[in-house]
């Protein structure tokens, strides 16, 4: 009985430590992502992620940002000039491809975007970026 108890205790400890390190890696990724956002995305999507009316779409509460991760990874890799409405609005500008960003940087900046401006969504991993990059355009 005592043995079982200590095993459970040990398992709980492992889960706890794991959660802690997950929290820490998430925070580290968000911090790195913020630096990238300020450098490359802020000039169009703005400090508050609110975008520019009819020009650059908001990233706060955007169905793209909160939706399919592969889709937004693709947008960072290849840009966006679809001329299709985003959350029922048209935007009269083009987003460039950000080919100068590596997989880690894209994972970080999207993790930042998905956890800022009132957004709360899971992190984007390097593996997920890698998978989208390896697919043909």
């Amino acid at each position: 009985m005592k043995k079982i108890f200590s095993v459970i205790l040990f398992l709980l400890f492992v889960v706890f430590v794991n959660a802690q390190t997950n929290q820490q890696t998430l925070k580290a990724s968000i911090d790195r992502g913020q630096k990238i956002y300020f450098k490359v995305c802020l000039s169009c999507h703005m400090l508050d992620g609110g975008g520019v009316p009819h020009m650059n779409p908001p990233l706060s509460q955007s169905s793209y940002v909160l939706g399919d991760k592969a889709k937004i990874i693709y947008i960072i890799l290849h840009g966006l000039e679809t001329r299709e409405p985003i959350d029922d609005e048209y935007y009269s500008n083009n987003m460039a491809a950000h080919t100068d960003l590596n997989n880690q940087q894209i994972a970080d900046v999207l993790t930042y975007v998905r956890n800022s401006f009132g957004n709360k969504a899971s992190a984007v991993s390097v593996a997920e970026v890698k998978a989208v990059r390896s697919k043909k355009k």
């Binding site: 840009g79 987003m95 460039a96 491809a97 950000h98």
Partner: peptide, 8 residues
Amino acid sequence: EKDRTLHS
């Protein structure tokens, strides 16, 4: 060559 792209 590529609109609004770094060093294009």
